[in-house]
Simulated assay, not measured.
Amino acid sequence: MNPDVAADLTDLSDTLANVEAVTDLPSLRSQIAELEEQAARPDLWDDPDSAQKVTSQLSHKQSELRRVEDLRQRLDDLGVLYELAEEEDAADAAADTTAEAEVERTKLRSEISSLEVRTLLSGDYDERDALVTIRSEAGGVDAADWAEMLMRMYLRWAERHDYPVEVYDISYAEEAGIKSATFKVTAPYAYGTLSVEQGTHRLVRISPFDNQGRRQTSFAGVEVLPFVEAVDHVDIPEKDIRIDVFRSSGPGGQSVNTTDSAVRITHLPSGIVVSCQNEKSQIQNRAAAMRVLQVKLLERKRQEERAEMDALKGDGGSSWGNQMRSYVLHPYQMVKDLRTEFEVGNPGSVLDGEIDGFVEAGIRWRRTQA
Rank of each mutant, 00 (worst) to 15 (best):
N2L: 15
A6T: 09
T10C: 08
S13Q: 15
S13C: 10
A17H: 14
N18T: 02
T23M: 13
S27W: 12
S27E: 14
Q31V: 07
W45R: 11
D49W: 08
S56D: 12
R72S: 10
G79W: 10
L84S: 13
E111T: 13
E111C: 01
I112N: 04
V117S: 14
L121Q: 14
G123Q: 15
D124G: 08
G139R: 06
W146N: 00
W146F: 07
L150Y: 06
E166Y: 03
I170E: 02
S171V: 11
T186G: 10
G192F: 04
T200M: 11
R202E: 00
P208D: 13
G213N: 15
R214F: 11
S218L: 11
A220C: 08
G221M: 13
F227I: 09
H233S: 15
I236F: 07
D244L: 11
F246C: 00
R247S: 10
G250N: 11
Q254E: 06
H267Q: 10
V274G: 03
I283C: 01
R286F: 03
A287G: 05
A288D: 09
M290R: 03
M290N: 03
R291K: 14
L293N: 03
K296E: 03
K296D: 01
K301G: 09
R306K: 13
A307V: 01
E308W: 12
D310Q: 12
D315C: 05
G317H: 01
S319M: 05
N322R: 05
Q323Y: 10
R325L: 07
E341Q: 11
V344H: 07
V350G: 06
D356S: 10
V359R: 09
A361F: 04
